[in-house]
């Protein structure tokens, strides 16, 4: 048998299980947003525990921007197979037709169309009334005030000035027809907790988190991995092999790698403790201005 979890991880796990059960008990059509990253891996793992011996009574949904790392897609399909849950994949076909891409359209239009609009389309199409997301409050300033149960209007908008107070663990789950709830079971986890938990519970994660020789180019100071031949290269530019890893995963052209030697979990944890930058630093979409995450969220971004 595995070692018992340390007390603070046990608390966090029990709280996340409570939140997931509350959603299943109170909503008609929940879904789990599965974004393939480490937080999604933890969320998926806890879902198996929360409903055992039943399978989690909801499907997984991945909003595919078509620009994810290839290893992510492989991992996604294997993960869904492993847990035996239904995996729904949605691609904003309208965006594909319009030729939206991070290169042609810029990061903010790409994110808006392929992620935010894609997500709204998927939620509307399957009429989900609650969607789990793996966001944590420690990720970014505006997330610190996000509720665990975050109410969205029928048009998926978030109103930060009119949030329901959240007391004890008494979550107000009431919504009107057409409205929905975004639910964040990992709200109280930190990046360190996530890695400690992955290590303790031996949870599989995408190999991109571990350092390896990978082909990269330098873009505005960020190391971008050339994951396929859609990446436009400047004349004379050739990708060079560097030992890198990723702290967060998203669309490959928008996700900066960090030079690293950390090839396993304990090395990652040690490296992270020594780190001077937050994990979102590698996300090109956050840099525009400090309030940019809040703006995206009001429009329906996760």
């Amino acid at each position: 048998m595995k070692k018992p979890l340390p007390p603070h991880l046990r608390q966090l796990e029990a709280e996340s299980i409570f939140i997931m059960r509350e959603v299943v008990a109170e909503f008609e059509r929940p879904v789990m947003l599965y974004s393939i990253g480490k937080d999604s891996s933890v969320m998926l793992h806890i879902a198996q525990k929360a409903f055992f011996p039943s399978k989690p009574p909801f499907p997984l949904l991945h909003v595919d921007t078509t620009w994810k790392f290839r290893e992510m897609i492989t991992f996604r399909d294997e993960a869904a197979q492993r847990v035996g849950m239904e995996l729904l994949v949605h691609i904003n076909q309208d965006g594909v037709r319009r030729g939206i891409s991070p290169f042609a359209s810029g990061s903010s239009v790409h994110t808006q169309v392929m992620k935010t609009e894609g997500l709204r389309q998927a939620l509307d199409h399957w009429k989900f009334d609650a969607a789990f997301g793996g966001a944590r409050r420690d990720e970014e300033k505006s997330r610190a005030k996000e509720r665990v149960f975050s109410h969205r209007s029928a048009s998926h908008a978030w109103d930060p000035r009119n949030q329901r107070p959240e007391l004890w663990h008494l979550y107000n789950t009431r919504i009107r027809p057409g409205e929905s709830m975004r639910v964040f079971p990992l709200s109280n986890w930190t990046e360190l907790d996530v890695w400690d938990y992955i290590e303790a519970e031996e949870i599989p994660v995408v190999p991109l988190y571990f350092a390896k020789e990978r082909p990269v180019v330098d873009r505005q100071g960020a190391l971008i991995m050339v994951d396929d031949d859609r990446m436009p290269l400047a004349p004379g530019e050739t990708p060079r092999m560097e030992k890198v890893r990723f702290r967060t995963l998203g669309c490959y052209p928008l996700t900066g790698a960090v030079r690293s030697e950390a090839g396993n979990l304990s090395e990652i944890i040690a490296e992270m403790r020594a780190s001077h930058t937050s994990e979102r630093e590698g996300r090109l979409i956050d840099h525009d201005e400090s309030g940019s995450m809040e703006k995206k969220k009001r429009e329906g971004y996760f």
Binding site: H8, R137, S142, A144, K145, S187, N188
Partner: peptide, 26 residues
């Protein structure tokens, strides 16, 4: 002080949750 409006007004108008860990406790 997280949200934009609060920053501009200079007052915290909601509950913000912060996380930190020392070598001895979270």
């Amino acid at each position: 002080d997280g949200l934009e409006a609060e920053r501009e007004q200079g007052i915290t108008i909601d509950v913000a949750y912060r996380y930190f860990t020392t070598p001895r406790r979270s």
